[in-house]
Simulated scan of single mutants.
Amino acid sequence: MNIFSKLAMDTGMNPYIHVAYRQIFAFLFLAPVAFFVERGKRPPMTMTVLFQVFLSSIFGLTMNQITYFVGLKNSTPTIACALSNLLPAITFVLAVIFKQEKARLKTLGGVAKLMGTLVGVAGAMLLSLYHGPVIPIGEPGIHLRVPDNAANGSNGPGHANIVGPLLVIISALTWAIWFIIQAKMGDAYPAPYSSSALMLSMSTIQCTIFGAIMVPHAREWALYPGIRAVASVYGGVVCSGIGVCMMSWCIQRKGPLFVSVFSPLLLVIVAALSWALLREKLYLGTLLGSVLIVIGLYSVLWGKSKEIEEVQQPLKELQQVTKEDIEMHKELQEVTKDDMEMH
């Protein structure tokens, strides 16, 4: 998505238009899925849930994607992807503020989460503010015509522009707010596909109106060259549609911690593809900042896993005690039975 979107916007596609098309294609894909998968399972809609869905559409889709793609246009896919890894740390801070998570600073897990958050923020600041020398890794052997054409119509990667990284950080903040809202809404309305489809319908209207205000000329909405259509359909169907379904499937079987552990792998993949396909140069600041973000992320995840172990340990001990009581009761019954036979 990062590569396709960057190529599309480098050909002159406005990010507001790209966001609007992404919502449209995502809604057209997910609406029938939600209708058939959750037919007869949807709980009744209330005004409270409807308001939560509206807030989710504002923060989780409209504001999140507008700030992200405008930030992507004014930076690079590697920077945008790296800063997106701040999401777990920002979510942890907001969860503590809204009492959905406990800091537990007197425990090893709580200290690890706090230190991981600070290290991740430091990495984001280093990546955003420090450029540094180019890492000499040579030129890629791949030569594609599309990136060359895109580069000719581009206003430059904007690597040194602080606006791009700042907007991506704001995007991560709005996405974290969406997580907080979703945690409350999921308990009252346990129909994720239907709520997502309703959320996409609202964001489609919001983004289309906002895009029409920002870009009123109809010719700017053309999905030509073809990379614009590819980026819009891919972002909507694959990322907002199939991607959400796949992550939900994995979370149900392995839990959110297992899924989020793979997030830093995205940074490595995007950096390699950006170097190979977009001929993006890798800078020392980008490398050092990315490493700190990954270290901070894994520190938060490790701290969270330690807390889960600490919570589950008393339960395991209770289960062990219960098992021992059952065995002792069986032995007592056996002794009583022997006494009766002896009598």
Rank of each mutant, 00 (worst) to 15 (best):
M247P: 00
G243R: 12
V259Q: 02
T286C: 03
K281V: 10
L273M: 04
M247T: 09
A271T: 15
C250R: 13
W249T: 14
V233K: 00
V270W: 08
Y283N: 03
L282D: 06
L277K: 03
K254V: 12
V237F: 04
K281L: 07
V244N: 14
R228K: 14
G235F: 13
I269V: 13
E280F: 08
W275R: 00
G255C: 01
S232I: 03
T286Y: 11
A271M: 12
V244W: 14
R279W: 12
V230D: 00
V270Y: 06
F262R: 01
V261H: 05
P225Q: 06
G255K: 04
Q252L: 11
A276L: 10
L267P: 00
L284P: 05
M247F: 05
S248W: 11
P225S: 11
L265G: 15
A271N: 11
M247V: 14
Y224D: 15
W249C: 02
V230T: 12
G241E: 07
Y234G: 01
G236S: 07
G235R: 13
G236Y: 12
Y283M: 09
E280S: 04
R253M: 12
V270T: 06
Y283L: 09
S274P: 10
P256W: 01
S240C: 14
S240F: 15
K281N: 12
S260N: 06
L278M: 02
L257A: 09
W275N: 00
G236N: 02
I251G: 02
W275G: 06
Y224V: 15
P256S: 11
R228M: 13
P225K: 10
L267V: 03
S240L: 15
C250T: 14
L267T: 02
L257N: 07
M247I: 14
M247W: 08
I269M: 05
L282H: 10
G226Y: 11
V270M: 04
L257C: 00
M247E: 10
V270E: 08
L277R: 05
T286R: 12
F258K: 01
A276W: 13
L287H: 01
V230M: 08
S263V: 12
A231T: 07
E280R: 04
M246Q: 08
K254L: 10
L267E: 01
G241D: 14
L284D: 03
V259S: 04
L273Q: 11
V230Q: 01
W249Y: 13
S263H: 13
C245T: 03
